[in-house]
């Protein structure tokens, strides 16, 4: 128990330091644009289809679950509002981050872990190439940019999914659904006339992207040699990322909507 706590604290310390180191190296991002672009491709285009597939079903689930309750009170016209706001505020960023943790995060940990056990990290070290600037920063920046972008996609496709259910199962016409979505996503006080829910959701996605990429890179950098090393690193990356995303999600939601 004590050793679990000690290794947890050691990991968190390492992760905080790594985050700081990455921030200090953001200045070299323009020079690393090729590596960042590659990372955007890896973490973005390769998982678009997963985000689309999961997003549409999440929207359908939200519509179905809340729609049944609402129709008991004759309020099913509200379904568009509920789907739009819960996708943007909560479901979109959360689901996107979990998908990224499971796909891109595990790949990052496996890739960097393999480099650790095959001495590629030592090779960088003897060439005096900074591994944080060369390996970690481009990956964190790539995932941190991609997570909000994919969240927009997830939000949108989720709302479409909700519309399918509204139309087919709840007898709310597409036009009515569309109107209530537009109404919910309209706030004249903010940029693009989008409501606070959209912006806080995107901010959350950005934070989740940083968290999952830092945790995954940490797991890879600390991979131990031996047949199990990379496997353990990958498993730890996904597990810790998802836990950290859920816990930080609570605190971010609390911060934005209860304060």
């Amino acid at each position: 128990m004590l050793s679990v706590a000690a290794s947890f604290l050691r990991d968190v310390g390492f992760q905080l330091e790594l985050t700081l180191q990455v921030l200090l190296r953001l200045g070299s991002a323009p020079r690393r644009r090729t590596l960042i672009a590659e990372q955007l491709f890896q973490s973005g285009l390769k998982v678009v289809h997963v985000v689309l597939l999961v997003g549409v079903f999440i929207g359908m689930i939200v519509a179905l679950q809340t729609g049944i309750e609402l129709s008991n009170f004759g309020q099913q016209d509200q379904i568009g509002t509920i789907v739009a706001l819960s996708m943007c505020r909560e479901m979109g960023p959360f689901i996107t981050a979990v998908i990224l943790a499971a796909t891109v995060g595990s790949a990052l940990a496996a890739e960097i872990g393999t480099m650790a056990v095959s001495e590629e990290l030592h090779a960088l070290e003897v060439m005096s190439i900074d591994r944080i600037s060369y390996l970690v920063m481009p990956r964190v920046v790539g995932v941190a940019i991609m997570c909000p972008l994919l969240t927009v996609l997830c939000d949108t496709i989720g709302i479409v999914g909700g519309g399918l259910i509204a139309d087919s199962q709840l007898n709310v016409g597409v036009a009515l659904y569309y109107d209530s979505v537009i109404d919910a996503l309209n706030d004249r006080g903010l940029p693009l006339e989008l409501p606070k829910e959209v912006y806080t959701g995107l901010f959350k996605a950005l934070i989740f992207g940083v968290i999952l990429s830092i945790i995954s890179c940490t797991a890879g950098l600390n991979a131990t040699s031996g047949a199990m090393g990379v496997g353990n690193a990958t498993r730890k990356a996904v597990r810790d990322s998802i836990i950290a995303i859920i816990i930080s999600n609570y605190f971010l939601s609390w911060f934005f909507f209860n304060a």
Partner: peptide, 9 residues
């Protein structure tokens, strides 16, 4: 390096 340690990427 004994095992070359080339960057695979």
């Amino acid at each position: 390096f004994q095992e070359a340690a080339l960057l695979n990427s």
